[in-house]
Computed example of a mutant assay.
Amino acid sequence: MNEAPKLLLAHHLKTLKLPTVLREYDKVAQQCAAEGLDHVQFLARLVELELIDRERRMIERRIKAAKFPAVKSLDSFDFKAIPSLNKMQVLELARCEWIERRENVIALGPSGTGKTHVALGLGLAACQKGLAVGFTTAAALVHELMEARDQRRLLRLQKQLVSHKLLIIDELGFVPLSKTGAELLFELISQRYERGATLITSNLPFDEWTETFGSERLTGALLDRLTHHVSILEMNGDSYRLGQSRAHKARVAADAQH
C-alpha cells in the first residue's frame, strides 16, 4: 500500500495542530465502517474527540499557570464539618458568574476551617470554565511586589497580576505587612477593582485588618473597594460577619455602663 497519502495527511494534521485527529482517525474510521456510519458522521465524531481533548489540555494549562499549591475540588470538601459555611452559596460561586461580573469573595475564619480548600476549589472551577486564575499567599505576593519595585519591573508585574480574571490571595493577616508592602498590596487591589475578581482568605475579622495593614485609613479604603461587590464566606459563624465584631464590642461597652 502506498504510504504517501498517510504521510501527507500526518504532515497536514501536525501543521493544523490537530494531534487527536492524527492519533484517532484510523481507529474511528474502522469503528464508523463497522457501524455503517457515513463520512459526515465519521468526521463529526473525529472533530468532537479533538475538541474534548483540546478543552482538557486548555484546562491543564490554566491549572499549571495558576500555580495552585495543590489541586483540590469542592467535591472533596466536608461541608458538614463547617456548619457556619453556606454550602449553597459556595456551589453558586462555583458557577463563576461572580468572576465574569468582576466581584470579590472573602473567606473568613480561624486556621484549619478549610478556607484554602474552598479557595482552591473555586479556583479550579474557574480554570475548568476557561478563565485565567492566579494563586498566591499575601506574604509571597507582597514579597514579589517589593522585589519587582526594587528591580524596576513593578509596572510589568502589576499588569500581569491585573490580567488574571481571578486572583486568589491566601492567608491575609497571618503576617503584619510593612508600610511599603501594605501600600503595594492596596495599589494592586485598587488596580483590580471592577477590572477583575479577587478572592481573599483571612484568619482575622475585618475590624482586625488594621493590625495587618498598620493604618486605619488604608484598611478602610481597602475594605471599601473589596466589599463594594462581595460575597463573604463565614467559616466560623456569625462573629465573622462584616461589622458583627464592631456591634459586639458596642454591646459589651453598653452592658458595662449599666
Score class of each variant (00 low, 15 high):
123 G>F: 05
109 G>T: 09
189 I>C: 11
158 Q>R: 05
75 D>Y: 07
22 L>P: 00
192 R>L: 10
199 L>G: 02
147 E>D: 13
45 R>Y: 00
58 M>F: 05
173 G>N: 04
109 G>M: 13
254 A>L: 14
107 A>Q: 03
163 S>W: 04
118 V>P: 10
200 I>W: 08
139 A>G: 03
165 K>F: 04
211 E>N: 10
148 A>E: 10
196 G>K: 01
245 S>R: 13
30 Q>I: 11
215 S>W: 00
186 F>A: 08
92 E>R: 00
15 T>V: 00
66 A>W: 12
47 V>T: 09
200 I>M: 07
172 L>I: 09
23 R>H: 13
7 L>F: 01
247 A>K: 06
240 Y>H: 09
57 R>T: 14
67 K>S: 14
37 L>R: 14
193 Y>K: 01
4 A>G: 07
130 G>P: 06
4 A>R: 11
81 A>I: 06
86 N>M: 09
91 L>D: 07
213 F>I: 10
171 E>N: 04
251 R>I: 09
28 V>E: 15
254 A>E: 13
93 L>Y: 06
62 R>D: 14
248 H>M: 13
37 L>A: 10
146 M>E: 15
137 T>A: 14
161 L>W: 03
3 E>A: 10
92 E>F: 02
46 L>N: 06
155 L>K: 04
86 N>W: 08
220 G>R: 03
30 Q>T: 11
133 V>M: 01
175 V>Y: 02
196 G>C: 04
212 T>D: 07
167 L>Q: 07
223 L>V: 13
9 L>P: 06
134 G>C: 09
74 L>T: 05
25 Y>M: 01
112 G>A: 03
63 I>E: 09
197 A>N: 02
161 L>G: 08
136 T>G: 03
113 T>M: 12
125 A>S: 12
192 R>Y: 03
142 V>C: 07
229 H>V: 13
195 R>S: 07
153 R>S: 12
119 A>Y: 11
17 K>Y: 02
110 P>F: 05
254 A>T: 14
173 G>E: 05
137 T>D: 05
69 P>C: 02
194 E>V: 08
129 K>R: 11
205 P>E: 12
138 A>H: 01
76 S>M: 08
78 D>I: 03
23 R>E: 15
228 H>L: 06
47 V>F: 04
173 G>V: 08
250 A>H: 01
73 S>A: 06
178 S>N: 09
154 L>C: 08
256 A>L: 08
105 V>G: 02
171 E>Y: 04
236 N>Y: 06
183 E>P: 03
173 G>K: 00
131 L>C: 12
41 Q>A: 15
85 L>M: 10
203 N>L: 02
59 I>K: 04
142 V>L: 12
19 P>L: 04
193 Y>E: 06
217 R>S: 13
186 F>T: 12
114 G>N: 02
82 I>E: 12
55 E>K: 02
228 H>V: 09
54 R>N: 13
81 A>Y: 04
189 I>F: 08
81 A>H: 08
36 G>P: 00
85 L>V: 14
56 R>A: 15
253 A>D: 12
166 L>T: 15
176 P>C: 02
64 K>A: 14
113 T>P: 05
143 H>D: 13
178 S>E: 09
245 S>N: 14
219 T>Q: 07
22 L>A: 07
248 H>R: 15
173 G>A: 05
3 E>S: 13
216 E>H: 02
88 M>S: 15
134 G>A: 10
132 A>P: 06
192 R>D: 11
20 T>Q: 01
10 A>I: 00
194 E>W: 04
245 S>I: 11
135 F>D: 14
